[in-house]
Amino acid sequence: MSENKELLKNGKRIDGRGIEDLRDMEAEVGIFKRADGSGYFRMGNTEAVAAVFGPRELHPKHRQKPKRGILQCRYNLTPFSVEDRKRPGPSRRGKEIGKVSEGALSSIVFLEEFPTATIDVYMEVISADAGTRCVALNAASIALADAGVPMKGLISACAAGKIEDTPVLDLKGEEDKDGQVDLPIAMNAETGDITLLQMDGMTDIDEMDEMLGLAVKGCKKVAEKQREALMKTFEDSK
């Protein structure tokens, strides 16, 4: 681990944030006309767009479930989103994140209302600076609401981590690279149900608790931003 950079100085991080500060956020609903629902989310320099199609007929037919619908997720890092151009096309990492996002989102959607059908969620990261899965999920969640898909609530996602032995909220690129722990979570901020929890790095149980507490706080702030963006759709349609 390269320790040449000082990530934390007098309680301030490299971009001037405090330990419990999120990066600035931006959210927009309905950015694609041809999709049933769409959304954009930005946290600092990480940006993602999401499009939702469906419920629609599922093919191939053998994947249809007679009693409930399914939710399919695609997560993709665009080639220009990272510093060194990423080779386009599916990757091991992309598939894995798509898979865990499916789990994070399908637990709040009333899939039993759409037997045999599918809801397709496409998430594209257009600029990556750590926390891409969280930002992509935030965009996907508002896109699902925009599509009129029945849901138990909204999914809000946010990462916490550890840099220089201090738990901090919402890592940015350098902190993720040179830090010790990255802990992204996704949750229904209203009920407190966590639907995604991953961790990279090493920690002990007390620090884990502390980081989780931070991430939950972050998710609540993200949820407020999502609510604000969704409420704007009522004005637009007037």
Partner: peptide
């Protein structure tokens, strides 16, 4: 009353 959504 939903703002959007498909037909079932």
């Amino acid at each position: 009353i939903p703002l959007s959504g498909g037909y079932i």
